[in-house]
Design a protein around this nucleic acid. Structure first.
Lengths: 248, 248
DNA sequence: AATGGGAGTTGCAAAATATGCAACATCTGA
DNA sequence: TCAGATGTTGCATATTTTGCAACTCCCATT
């Protein structure tokens, strides 16, 4: 729609992969160096990019500020924080908070594991829909038409032996999630990690977000993981109460 | 330099303060609705903004992703993490990591206090230069010409009884910081909080970042705070080693 | 059910703006 | 000192962005 803006945003995305020179960036958007330079200068004036030495550009600090401000505005995140922090510090495992937005599931908060083995994940990242416990929780609460729409766009790449491979099996899984009130990722995403998740609900009972706890299999077998369900559900419940949920 | 890009970035900054309607946004950049709409659509296609209901726009998830990716790329942050986390979980106070960039001091990481009373701060935010311990650490390491330039642009608003009020006093303070190897914010920023900071150094001994620990005065008096200096310095030293620093 | 207002959307013509070019500047390493 | 690579600026051109006005859609009011 707006060509120069489009190009500039492409530059920013490109810079996310690491500092780049003017020429490299020009190559990416296919324009003359001088054009790229002018775009970068505008981006720089808003602190979206900054110079890194003389020959490189990288992402600027405005992005950090904006992103963290926006994250803080998400009320669930703030409201759920104490409960999630408590769970994380008591059990020492990785705790994630994720929310559904517009066909995607996004990690909006993360509490790192105390153990050596860490998961690779990141706030802001999209969670795969077919193989994560948080996605199952969030999609399980969608109305049928919205769910169908998401399902239509979903893919089911086989990531491990346990990955769910098609819409039918996935729908059945969501049914189980609804019945149980929690979701599991039984090494469906990565071989060495499994995961449980539960919903955080708002005043009208709607699902606002999902909490999950991820544990490497070497630390805890599947039964051991499930034995933490009461902890997780209590955490989710506490967070829900903070979000205005009235337990029945 | 690039008008449309400039306008679009202004829109993004504006959205940081909360969701806005098309008309509100048009007002901010002073153009016709249709122009704003086209900019927003481009921003939307890159997931920089997203629609919030029908009538509002808000920041999109690409920002979270970019910002956190960029933060992770900052090597100091990753390298310093274990040491900072350890300090935070052992003493339970707020720990900040800040770095100097282009005339500014930016918080690049934060570990929340375990206590009820929290500081208001945020990753990505700029720290005031004249009244924070991290800024003192970082500015104390600047070469004279660079420091002069920063000093020329500095302001010294009086925030508490103890705030340092002018360049002369500030330079004297930096001299003390260099001599001591640590910095203090003795309630110079906020009445009820004080703070100590220490440098994290790289392979050539240069200051890469500053760690600080902030404590409410009700929890610990000034002498109590200073009694944690050995902890803080040890943490900074450990982080420095991770960054390639060779202790002399 | 009809009416009116508010908000968003589209096509088009006008013009302001972004673009590529070529010349110039700066830096690095031979 | 020179060659080459990289970054920077002024200018003319035309592409892209803009505002306009008409249109649609949705909601609230009569």
């Amino acid at each position: 729609m707006s060509q120069s803006l489009d190009r500039a945003l492409t530059l920013v995305s490109q810079l996310a992969t690491g500092p780049k020179t003017l020429d490299e960036l020009s190559g990416v958007i296919g324009v003359h160096k001088s054009t790229t330079l002018r775009l970068l200068r505008t981006l720089e004036s808003h602190r979206f990019v900054q110079r890194d030495g003389v020959h490189h550009y990288r992402l600027g600090t405005a992005l950090f500020d904006l992103a963290n401000l926006a994250l803080e505005e998400r009320d669930v995140r703030r409201a759920a924080e104490p409960a999630l922090r408590e769970l994380n510090s008591r059990l020492g495992h990785t705790v994630h908070l994720a929310s559904y937005e517009d066909g995607e599931v996004i990690y909006i908060d993360k509490y790192e594991s105390r153990h050596q083995m860490r998961m690779y994940s990141r706030i802001g990242r999209r969670a795969p829909l077919h193989c994560t416990a948080v996605a199952k929780i969030l999609l399980a609460d969608l109305a049928a038409p919205a769910l169908q729409k998401v399902l239509a766009g979903m893919e089911f790449p086989k990531l491990t032996e346990n990955t769910i491979l098609g819409p039918a099996a996935y729908l059945a899984e969501l049914e189980r999630v609804r019945a149980n009130g929690y979701a599991v990722d039984n090494s469906e995403h990565e071989d060495f990690i499994h995961c449980i998740a539960a919903p955080i609900r708002g005043a009208r009972g709607e699902v606002l977000a999902a909490v999950s706890m991820s544990v490497p299999k070497v630390l805890l077998d599947y039964d051991g993981l499930l034995s933490h369900l009461p902890d997780l559900l209590a955490t989710a419940e506490a967070a829900s109460v903070e979000c205005g949920h009235v337990p029945k």
